[in-house]
Design a binder for these strands. Structure first.
Length: 259
DNA sequence: ATGGCTAGGCTCCCTAGA
């Protein structure tokens, strides 16, 4: 089973690039972030015609997540549990019904800049809530894949120029500590389980020729429960997508599971 | 980067992103 995460930075802007990548990569299911669309206007027919089921959790203008799947989806949850007052659409869960069911969480973790301030407070509170949710999901001891735009640079080797990020919400010590608390629940970073090389990125800014200079950061991750990690066959970053026509500033990251 | 680009709102400039 091939599962992917892709921050598309606007479904309307990516209405050609996303189907082009789906056609080439043929993932069984993909977690999308920053659809920047309400559910009612998401162009679901484009993807249904390609054989994908479409489950969205959108909002107007910003944020918004979705799951596309060629396999049946069950037990869909929209919104990160634990705070009914949170109106931002950043979390969706579903069980992908392949030969072995996989619980898939798609997330768009808050950016948190500028720091310090209310946006950074929201980021850290959201991460604590996410930790609680994952703790609960791990109790099921079923294969669990937590895929998305984490807005976290885990280590210095995950940035071309880590010194440029020292005061940034993506790399502050408190951010990385909160991320480690989640990983330390017993999760595996799928990419690092297969590739320990520096210079492996999933995001390049649109500005200042970041792509041409390979001035990137690795912030799109797939974290695996022990039962999912046991099934891991491969994990790759589809870097070449960034050089395509009208690209997102993020590229897809995918795993292949023996499931 | 003291943000050089992109996307969306409902605009002719603003917010937001990372």
């Amino acid at each position: 089973m091939k599962l992917a995460t892709f921050n598309i930075n606007g479904i309307k802007a990516r209405i050609d690039a996303l189907p082009r990548w789906l056609e080439a990569a043929k993932p069984d299911a993909v977690a999308l972030q920053e659809i920047k669309s309400v559910d009612e206007t998401f162009p679901r027919e484009v993807f249904e015609d390609m054989g994908y089921r479409v489950e969205t959790h959108g909002q107007k203008g910003f944020n918004g997540v979705a799951i596309l799947s060629r396999l049946p989806l069950e037990d869909i949850i929209r919104g990160l549990p634990g705070d009914d007052s949170d109106e931002q659409s950043r979390w969706i869960e579903a069980t992908v019904m392949g030969n072995r069911p996989i619980r898939l969480c798609g997330l768009y973790l808050p950016n948190g800049n500028p720091t310090p301030g209310p946006k950074y407070d929201y980021k850290l509170a959201w991460m604590a809530r996410m930790e609680t949710r994952i703790h609960d999901l791990l109790l099921t001891e079923e294969p669990l894949v937590i895929a998305g735009d984490y807005n976290v640079i885990p280590q210095a080797e995950d940035a071309a120029n880590p010194m440029a990020w020292t005061d940034d919400a993506l790399y502050l010590p408190a951010t990385r500590a909160a991320y480690r608390r989640i990983v330390n629940l017993g999760l595996t970073d799928a990419f690092r389980a297969r590739n320990q090389s520096p210079g492996q990125y999933s995001f390049w800014d649109y500005q200042a020729g970041a792509w041409e200079k390979n001035n990137g950061i690795r912030i799109d991750h797939l974290l695996l429960s022990p039962q999912a990690a046991d099934l891991l066959r491969d994990c790759q970053i589809d870097k070449e997508v960034r050089a395509g026509e009208k690209p997102s500033d993020h590229v897809p990251v995918w795993i292949d599971l023996a499931a």
